[in-house]
Simulated scan of single mutants.
Amino acid sequence: MHSIPIVYENDDICIINKPSGLAVQGGAGVISAVDTALSEQVGSKIYLVHRLDKDTAGLLITAKNPRAASLWTKLIASSAVQKEYYALCTGEFSQLEGTVSDPVVHKGSAKAAFTSFCAEKQCRIGQDAEHTSLTKQGRAACENVLLQGSTSLCFSLVRLRLGTGRMHQIRIHLAGRGNPIAGDDKYGDFKLNRFLSKKFGIKKLHLAAVCLRFSETCFSLADVPRIKAEGAHDKPFTIEIPLPDYMNKTLSLLEFAP
């Protein structure tokens, strides 16, 4: 496989841009995973401190020694590191900003979960709706689905911030409010996903971890640099990356890029 992109590295941590489709941890039936592939790449053992779904792309913090692994596991669990994502959802957000607080059930146990969202851009296609923001190809594809019984189709580009880190939390919360992520084959709209795959080439989950914000706690307990700002106090260290190419391709087709 190709090398895993390293975004930031010091003596204790290695922050990567995990590709979609790469599992974080190895196990039965897993051909390749971050914990083994990254260890081979950097030439020393890598320790996991948090997770991303296999199909979710983006920023992942790993540790390079047991002490750092213990520290960063605690920092992430205490929300000293704020994680932000972008998702391309289907359906309209009547409330552009808010928090989903529905509990997430895992292995029969309901856990508290909080996801803040901000729908930054939306596009509706259908009866009495403007669809000039779409390309000719995009309009034709969306109008075709209207002929199959739907009255309209809406895409929403949503920025999300995690208050908790439950398994599949974002995917469950968005699907639960009627805005499943495009390409989500576990919690999404399966009929619509087939259409999106055929007409737009959406074959991957359109969810990416794009930003990590490190609080003052990280500076006091760990080796994390500050970012200097002219005429202002030091501001928290932030790492932000672009969306993966396959999401940008979809957004470009919809003329929907952020």
Rank of each mutant, 00 (worst) to 15 (best):
G26Y: 08
P19E: 02
E130Q: 11
K74D: 13
D245Y: 05
A119Q: 03
M167Y: 11
E240S: 10
D189P: 12
F155L: 04
Q127S: 14
V49L: 08
P225Q: 08
L75S: 12
M247T: 07
A208K: 02
G231H: 01
V24M: 05
H206Y: 04
Q127D: 10
G27Y: 10
T250P: 04
S116P: 00
I76R: 03
E255D: 11
A208D: 03
D189G: 13
P244H: 07
T36P: 00
D185Q: 14
A140K: 11
K45T: 12
Y8N: 06
A182V: 14
E230K: 00
L134H: 01
P66Q: 05
G91D: 05
K198N: 06
K54P: 04
K136D: 13
E84M: 05
A222F: 02
R139A: 14
V49C: 12
F155K: 06
V145W: 07
M1S: 07
S109A: 07
N248H: 03
E255Y: 00
S44F: 06
D223A: 10
I15K: 13
A77G: 11
C154T: 15
A68G: 03
L162C: 13
C123L: 15
V81K: 09
A77R: 10
L134T: 04
G98W: 12
K249W: 00
I239K: 06
P180A: 14
A80I: 01
I31T: 12
L192V: 10
A57I: 09
V104K: 06
I125R: 00
I170M: 09
K64W: 02
K107R: 15
A87E: 01
A119F: 01
R177G: 00
F214L: 04
G43C: 11
A175D: 08
R51A: 07
F114L: 15
L88A: 10
F200S: 08
